[in-house]
Every structure is written in C-alpha cells, then in structure tokens.
Amino acid sequence: MTTTPATTGTTDIVPGPPTAAPRGRGLRRFLANRMAVVGLAILVLLVLFSVLGPLVYPTDQVHTDLANANLPPGAGHPLGTDAVGYDVLGRLMIAGRVSLVVGLAAGILATLVGTLWGAVAGYVGGWVDAAMMRVVDAGIAIPAIFLLLVVSAITRPSVPLLVVVIGLVSWLVPARLVRAEAVSLKTREYVLAVRAGGGTHGRAVLRHIVPNTVGTVVVNATFQVADAILLVAYLSYLGMGVQPPSTDWGAMLSSGISLVYSGAWWLILPAGLAIVAVVCAFNFIGDGLRDMLDVKGRRS
C-alpha cells in the first residue's frame, strides 16, 4: 500500500512521488490538537465500558424485577434501576454496544456507498455525472429522519436493517465531497497514464481516484459515525428505532422520560450524557484528523 499525501483537490499541488515525511508530522499535529486527544480518550473509555463493562459488572438485563423498580442510586445499584427493575449502569453498557455498533456500521456503510458513487460520477463526468448528482440532490431533499420514520412505520426495524437504512440515507454528503475531488483528480497525469497504458476505467477509479480521496473520506467518515449515532438516538427517542428487548442510549432515555418529572434523573441523565460524550468524541477526533490530513472544510 502506498501512502500519498492527501490532497485537497486544489490544482496548485504538483502530483509527484509520495513522500514519507507527512506521516510523522501528521501524527504530531493530531496529538497537538488537545481536543482530538480528549475525544480519542473518551471514545476508548466508552468502548471499554460497553464491551468489557458487563464482564466486570454483570447484571440481569433479561428478567424484569418489579420489586426493585425505580430505585434511586444507592448500594447495589450505583445508578439506580429503571421502571421494570433493570440496573441502569448495566443497561447503559449493553445499550452502548448497540449505539456504537449501529453508528459505526452505518457510518462506514454510508462512506463506502458515497465514496464509490461520487468517484464514479466525478470520473465518468458528462450526463452520467449530472444524473447521478441529481439523485444525490433528490436524496438530500428528503431529510433522513423523515424517511427513516416512514420506513419504521412500514416495518419495525431490526438492528441490521437499521444499519442498512441509516447507511442508505447518509451516503449523500460523502458522495458530493468525493465527486468534487474525483473531478479534479481525473485530469492528473498519473490517472491519464493508467488509461493511456491500457488500464480499465474500473482500475483508474478503484486504484487511483478512490485512494487519493482517502483524507477527505476518513475525515468525513468520522463525522458520519457521529451523525449516525445521533440519528439512531433520535429514532429510538421517537419510539421507532431499536425495539425491545434490545435497547440503545436513545431508547433508554426515551423510556425514562415519563418518570423524570417525579425526579428520576438517573433514567435520562446517564444515557443522555453518554450520547453527548460519544458524539463529541467523534466530532473532536474528526476535527483532529482534518488538521492532521490537511483536508479543507468540515461538512459539505
């Protein structure tokens, strides 16, 4: 695998042999961004909490325990129990698994689809490009949350379906970003050389266009994951996302709302703060990566 310095699509960069220098400098630049390091630390902690937490702190999240419902934080239940007696701390861990997995998988799926779509549109150009980008425009015209609610009304989604659907409504922004880069990349000498040397269009797109957009793609993917986690939280909050017995942080918060007015803060505060923390973490990391890879622009 070759590493090429990520370009921003401006024409003042002379295409040349890849240099090794930017890598070390980039890492230092990432570490110099204090918030990016904080974000990374928060993310690692939350992943450990969700993945290893239940091994250290096992709780029964299957059988309801109505005798011990709505207990405030105290001995035995550091964060209290919810309306059916589940331990809130333990539930926070297993809900975190769902939130993280759905967010990561949907964000990555959206990035893959969008990158390929944008690369092909920008590379082929002409009316194909125009048609493909009008599809993107039409997709952007229908806000994701509305489309997701329509789909949820047709069929209550399982977790894998949720990943696919969120991925398929979120690929539009990376498609636009990658297309813009592909348009400028396809006239570079090394891409022209592939074609002149008898290489196929597929080879030009997959081996030369896509790898050169990697900076933009990686930075955007980080923001995509953040947005996907938010989106699934919104859906679950609206009662149309992750369905019982499974749960995520959004669903946990949603089920605690009716009791919050009687003072049960532990039913919404931990779950809400977990969402804010993980989304912040991804956004901070994205900002750091952008500085490191020298990619311009945060979102489209």
Binding site: A226, Y234, G250
Partner: peptide
C-alpha cells in the same frame, strides 16, 4: 468553539428535556 461542538453533539430532545427540568 468547544462549547459549539458539544452543543452540536447534543440531541435536541436531551437539550430540551434539560431546559424543561
């Protein structure tokens, strides 16, 4: 700017709920 990222990362239902409380 850090506060802006935190706000941006806060689901509006959570923010609204905190304001209500």
């Amino acid at each position: 700017t850090t506060l802006a990222v935190v706000l941006y990362s806060t689901p509006s239902f959570f923010l609204g709920l905190l304001l209500v409380i």
